[in-house]
Write a protein that binds this DNA or RNA. Structure first.
Lengths: 101, 101
DNA sequence: TCCACGCTTGGCCTTATAGCCAAGCATAAA
DNA sequence: TTTATGCTTGGCTATAAGGCCAAGCGTGGA
């Protein structure tokens, strides 16, 4: 899976990593939910309806990408959106969808 | 790889598909280039420095997602950005990058 | 102190992605 | 009509991603 040459500029690699983190329906669903306030993992789990371990891994992907941050309070871990601007992009996405009709 | 329940709303699936199409350094590089005008496959090939077949497949991913459109003129196939608003998002991405420091 | 709860991590399996090469196909030039 | 050019497609291999289960770990309540 290695290219034969010509590294793509690091900028694009970095951007791609962020987009990749967002590029999953469950993760988008959680980001959307987090746009309305912080949530604990168990709430997100209920939202996406997958195994807790799966949800936790999705969250760690978002966290590693710098999109969310977490914070442990008592027994629960709360996640919140670190970068609200991702939401703006969704309007653009709708445009793409509409354009394809 | 199938969930055990609860389908995520179709909206999120659709959005995720678009993000996934963008979530690759070579494809971002090409989108960036196309933001400055249409290009033939051979120009994009030179830009990303991969095998022609690889570039062609990347373009078909972008096309299937509705992000670019193509048009054959003579022996060449020209691609252009169908959805310029994707570029706006890049500013947001920079923000994420900066925020992670 | 010990158990229960909430979450994360490791392991495993299955499927999807990305790369190359080779073959195919369509158009233009010879 | 043949050949060359420009691109796409099929096939293959290697790696990454996404799901579950089971085990681990830390905190709070009994």
């Amino acid at each position: 899976m290695q290219p034969l040459s010509q590294p793509t500029p690091p900028d694009f690699e970095a951007r791609a990593r962020i987009l990749k983190a967002l590029a999953h329906a469950s993760r988008l669903l959680m980001v959307d939910e987090l746009s309305r306030g912080e949530r604990c993992v168990c709430e997100l789990r209920e939202l996406v309806g997958h195994d807790l371990s799966t949800v936790s891994k999705h969250l760690s992907v978002l966290k590693a990408a710098g999109i969310v941050e977490d914070d442990k309070r008592g027994k629960q871990v709360y996640y919140r959106l670190k970068v609200p601007c991702v939401l703006n992009f969704f309007h653009c996405l709708e445009g793409v969808l509409a354009g394809r009709k």
